[in-house]
């Protein structure tokens, strides 16, 4: 093979000239930076649909930003991102993950730093959730859900779940066990990240014959049938299941609520960063945030996105605003593998 001469050949120059001639007919190339295609790596289902109807079509289509969704489970999408980390140009512009995962990716140096010059709406973010690598999109506080037909005195603190009146009637969600550990630690020590202090309580809960569910959707039928009466879940679930006709209500533990945050980051090798920043800015617009609150029961992360009317009532936090506690993601990351192992063995009981 012969070496290619450096610099543009005559043929390339001709090609460039022809492309320049076509520019006026290609508006998405000719216009300023934030346009073209943006690839959003996201969960499927309702979330992806709502991204389309609240962000993509109303806010980005008018700016000539065409959104393509790359739908999959979070671990699979994260694996893909890690696998292509060495490529100068990846194929994802926006990555939707849970906040702990975003922290890990940022630690691995995969996420683009964000600030208000790139995403002006960042200044409206709720301070508890603000960071400079992945913007919180929606959040939901952990509450204790209870069946209103069978529980006359709602639980007021996590330790109520250990009391005899709920023995065998507590439901635990396997996929969010780490958040349950945090809730127990918070109640016991005032520090949600004091995992070891929470272990005895969790061990008691599991060994007392309380129920553990692998899939979130098995939780609602269990609450309805009386298999369980209470359990720590996200407030959004209460709202969602109430809509489906299950007689449940949220009790906010007096020690505070750990929050679940769903976030969006921009990979360092995103092909269209300008459009990605525009996307993040659009997702923080009040109209987009309200759409998610209305349909999924998650709370807005932007202080500008105030809720009104029936939605505001449904999602209302108690009169005395509960303490909302974002996990310390660094401590969580350090402890996660060990906690995973401990939890598996605890459930197994071998």
């Amino acid at each position: 093979m012969t070496e290619r001469p450096s610099g543009a050949s005559r043929r390339q120059l001709l090609g460039l000239g022809a492309a320049a001639g076509l520019l006026p007919f290609m508006p998405h190339v000719a216009r300023a930076q934030a346009s073209g295609r943006v690839v959003v790596s996201t969960w499927g289902g309702d979330y992806a649909k709502l991204l389309g109807s609240n962000i993509d079509q109303p806010l980005l289509a008018p700016k000539n930003i065409e959104v393509t969704q790359d739908v999959g489970t979070e671990p699979a999408r994260v694996a893909k991102l890690i696998a292509q980390r060495r490529l100068p140009r990846g194929n994802v512009d926006i990555l939707c993950t849970q906040a702990p995962q975003a922290y890990d990716l940022n630690e691995a140096g995969l996420l683009e730093p964000l600030d208000e010059s790139k995403v002006p709406n960042m200044r409206h973010l709720l301070p508890e959730m603000r960071n400079s690598y992945a913007l919180p999109h929606i959040f939901s506080p952990q509450i204790i859900i209870y069946n209103t037909e069978r529980v006359s005195a709602p639980p007021t603190t996590f330790s109520d779940l250990m009391s005899d009146r709920f023995k065998g009637k507590v439901g635990l969600l396997d996929n969010s066990f780490i958040y349950i550990v945090m809730a127990a630690a918070l109640q016991k020590t005032g520090d949600a990240m004091n995992f070891d202090a929470a272990k005895p309580d969790l061990e008691k809960l599991v060994k007392d014959g309380n129920r553990t569910y692998t899939v979130t959707d098995a939780f609602a039928p269990a609450l309805r049938s009386g298999e369980i009466d209470v359990g720590p879940v996200w407030q959004a679930r209460t709202i969602f299941w109430r809509k489906a006709g299950v007689a449940v209500q949220s009790a906010f533990p007096k020690e505070g609520s750990i929050i679940y945050v769903s976030s969006m980051g921009v990979p360092k090798n995103a092909p269209n960063k300008a459009a990605a920043f525009a996307y993040l800015n659009a997702m923080l617009e009040p109209s987009a945030q309200r759409g998610f609150a209305d349909s999924m029961g998650y709370l807005p992360t932007s202080s500008q996105a105030t809720l009104e009317g029936e939605v505001a009532q449904r999602l209302a936090l108690p009169e005395r605003r509960p303490k909302l506690i974002a996990p310390d993601y660094a401590k969580l990351a350090a402890a996660r593998d060990g906690l995973n192992d401990w939890w598996r063995r605890l459930l197994d009981g071998r």
Binding site: P75, V78, R211, Y213, T214, N340, R344, L347
Partner: peptide, 26 residues
Amino acid sequence: PLLLGGARFQMMAPMLFREYAVNNNW
């Protein structure tokens, strides 16, 4: 096993899937 066995009942395929897809421990 995942749906009928629940979280406390472990078999190889669900465990394999969890290591692969949840813990990303390929």
